[in-house]
């Protein structure tokens, strides 16, 4: 493909629609996961409107599930903020990794697109960029698909959730884990990545065991990042 680097940030309606359609099949799982959240939220004592509004405004599955753990008659605001931040800190990295392409957009478009940034559409768009294809349509269109089906799923979970009385026995709690793992394995695979993953996993497990809750995500990410810098620099010198 004679696609110059400057064209990869292209974003128009056909690309957004194409991104929406490409992420739509995955959205079946998003509906199921959203329904699991709706059900869990109802069991945690959230009203149906609170649950649906949360999915609409927050749109971050892992953080929303974690928030349910902190739910009670009184909710610790600061702990809630730090938990949500720690789990969603990976969005900072998504924005940073997407910046080389996002910088060509106007600020309104740039931050508008990022409204719906999440794991699946970010991974798909990065994959597209690495193959020399435009990825921002996948990011925004795909993000809109994920957001829409996440809210629909939540709504279904709240209103018809009684049909799924035990989501864990159906393996539904593993949707996120299996999805993220398929994204990891679908990416670049070589010795360098294997070393980086090992460092990240080890650091994460140590932090998980000895440091405050949820810090393991950032600790493992930073450790893996440092490992990638060290290993990559060695390659350069040869």
């Amino acid at each position: 493909m004679a696609c110059a680097d400057t064209e990869l940030h292209h974003l128009d309606k056909p690309l957004i629609w194409s991104g929406f359609k490409q992420l739509a099949p995955i959205s079946i799982f998003v509906i199921v996961f959203g329904a699991a959240f709706g059900l869990a939220a109802t069991q945690a004592g959230l009203s149906s409107s609170t649950t649906v509004v949360m999915s609409t405004l927050v749109f971050a599955g892992a953080a929303q599930f974690a928030a349910l753990d902190l739910w009670g008659t009184h909710i610790p605001l600061f702990t809630m903020m730090m938990t949500v931040f720690a789990i969603n800190a990976r969005h900072l990295l998504m924005g940073a990794t997407l910046y080389p392409w996002l910088r060509h957009l106007s600020p309104a478009k740039r931050y508008g697109v990022m409204l719906v940034a999440s794991d699946a559409n970010w991974a798909m768009s990065m994959q597209a960029f690495s193959r020399g294809k435009p990825g921002l349509g996948l990011l925004f269109g795909g993000g809109l698909a994920l957001w829409f089906f996440w809210v629909v799923g939540t709504w279904l979970g709240v209103y018809f959730g009684s049909a799924v009385s035990n989501p864990e026995s159906l393996g539904l709690d593993m949707v996120m884990g299996c999805f993220l793992l398929s994204m990891v394995i679908g990416g670049e695979k070589n010795l360098r990545m294997l070393i980086i993953w090992t460092v990240a996993a080890t650091a994460s497990l140590l932090a998980f065991r000895y440091l405050p809750a949820n810090s393991h995500i950032m600790v493992g990410a930073v450790a893996g990042g440092v490992a990638g810098t060290v290993w990559g620099a060695q390659n350069d010198e040869h």
Partner: peptide
């Protein structure tokens, strides 16, 4: 860039390891 690339994969690994 290298740091961020390594970091972006590591986030998912770090999230998955305890699971």
């Amino acid at each position: 860039k290298q740091f961020i690339q390594a970091m972006s994969g590591s986030v998912l690994v770090a999230l998955l390891a305890p699971i």
